[in-house]
Write a protein that binds this DNA or RNA. Structure first.
Lengths: 307, 307
DNA sequence: TAATATTAATTGACTAAGTCAACTATTTTA
DNA sequence: TAAAATAGTTGACTTAGTCAATTAATATTA
């Protein structure tokens, strides 16, 4: 019995071992060249930076200054780099790559590129793109620069289809509901699109992916129905449900709806607590075997602005 | 002007540089321990394998046998492992980890796990899951074990929503069509779900992701309409369109439809060629500014079984 | 079955990679 | 202006890793 986080650590380690090999493969050409990996990194860095000093490099590459000094001496002897005394600081010297150095670098670079191209060419175009996107996503997340907060926005073209899609997939997986349920959801969404003025749909996003949604539709002048409330399994239990329901409730108050109801299934305890905390009470239960399973539907109602 | 594949190589390199640092970070605790990375890998491997010999290890870890021999000697001296002569081969000796060795290993392991946990804990639960999934996907693709072929299957719950979703997103991006188009697509899909017996929808998948789809619906006894034909941008130009249209055409022949038509937009040259190659001819053009843009709709028709 | 080839593991001799502390020449700071 | 800090270099060293030779056991084959 491993905790989810331990499982993830195990997975990441597996990936690390695997990817260490991939990096090794790509670096192989460097190992075959007369330069060490550290040397290649130094050359790469000098090439990338327009002008840098030895101490810059030592800091960037986390390398011993003495060691670096010897590497640079060799590069200079081989004619790969040139050094010029800094105008502003007599102790420093500016490093720059020569034509020969650039050629050498390009050779190393091309060799490793061809390794990568070989790897890529095993994959169809689209999968290549997916691969690169996955890498970018990982980098984004691990670099800590990514905005990993969950944002809620109003719906955009495509979202309505997406909502139907996730309802179809998740309710099939979790409750074995079939095409009939999917159709029912689609119909309700179309009804909303027919007259969107009396309702709204919100989508919760995290890192560019949709992780939950909720909607409201006016049924009469004072009554609205809460619909399409769903949170992706990985994002349950982090307070997103409360945020979404709050969004809906605020909207209802703005629009002067004083009565909100919703239909749900019996047995969803987390949802029940959430509804109760917003003042909903159970008002009706009925069996429904339209959708393949003996689920019991529940209706919950709340009156607003009565406190 | 870089080719797409070069762009991807650049991206992968960027990721490699980045991930080298991540791996370095995770391995840091090993570097702080009295063991080298190679030694840690050896200990890890001995721990993982129930019983192994030195030559096993040398092969698995791609390590010099002489070097390995010395590492093992040190481990033995430190009481981390034990060796017993093999029953079946007097030259070999079976390596096994001692309690002390296991404790040492666990210490190294826990330290690197805590590094990873720190990394993970910056992210919300769901993003953690996404991270791990991305890693698994990369591993799957690069290990060459993944099935990267494109498969076509009939639709399942959720797919219909997904089709609406992708239509909404892609037609908005590519033609600036708005909610009205999304609604139109949804309505057509519902009409199909109302009576699925006279048509079918197929979905093309690659690596678990939907990369294209197509559908057909019976309009009269002998006439069917081809609909919802869309291929993800990354998967265009690889012959998938032809495969999907073929699937539809075969279905029509089976169902004795002898007349197929479709509506498309003017200017999609790749699609035009495809339709022509299946015998479709342009039969009608009309302007349509229902959906925000001055697109010209085209109708294409083909008679089957007349050759 | 004896001769030969192969394999597992070890050892000696070596090179490459990397670290550490001491040093010189500057520059910055108190 | 003296003391502290910084850039870069050098010598002496340790660690990591390679390569070829060696020993002992096993497998192969004439």
């Amino acid at each position: 019995m491993e905790s989810p986080i331990q499982q993830r650590v195990t997975e990441i380690r597996k990936f690390n071992r695997f990817y260490t090999n991939i990096i090794g493969l790509v670096n192989q050409n460097v190992l075959e060249s007369p330069y060490s990996l550290a040397e290649a990194r130094v050359l790469l860095e000098i090439d990338a930076a327009a002008a840098c000093t030895a101490s810059n490099l030592a800091e960037i590459l986390q390398i011993d200054p003495g060691y670096l000094s010897r590497i640079l001496r060799r590069f200079k002897k081989d004619g790969l780099i040139e050094t010029t005394k800094s105008m502003t600081d007599g102790r420093s010297q500016i490093l720059s790559i020569t034509e020969k150095g650039r050629a050498t670098f390009r050779q190393l670079s091309d060799a490793s590129a061809s390794q990568l191209i070989q790897l890529l060419e095993q994959l169809p175009q689209g999968a290549q793109q997916t691969l690169v996107q996955n890498m970018a996503a990982i980098q984004n997340m691990l670099s800590g620069q990514a905005d990993t907060s969950i944002t809620i926005r109003r719906h955009r073209p495509g979202d309505v289809g997406y909502i139907a899609y996730r309802h179809g997939v998740l309710y099939e997986k979790e409750y074995e509901l079939d095409h009939r349920f999917e159709k029912y959801v689609l119909q309700s969404l179309i009804a909303y699109l027919e007259d969107p003025s009396r309702g709204e749909i919100w989508v919760a996003e995290c890192c560019g992916a949709i992780v939950g949604f909720i909607g409201i539709v006016g049924i009469s002048e004072k009554t609205a129905q809460l619909r399409w409330f769903l949170i992706e399994p990985d994002f349950r239990g982090v307070g997103l449900g409360r945020k979404l329901v709050s969004t809906v409730m605020e909207y209802c108050q703005q629009k002067y709806y004083n009565h909100v109801f919703l239909w749900t299934f019996k047995g969803l305890d987390a949802a029940r607590h959430l509804y109760q905390s917003f003042g909903f009470t159970l008002t009706e239960e009925k069996e429904n075997d339209t959708w393949n399973n003996q689920l019991i539907e529940q209706r919950w109602d709340v009156m607003l602005g009565v406190d």
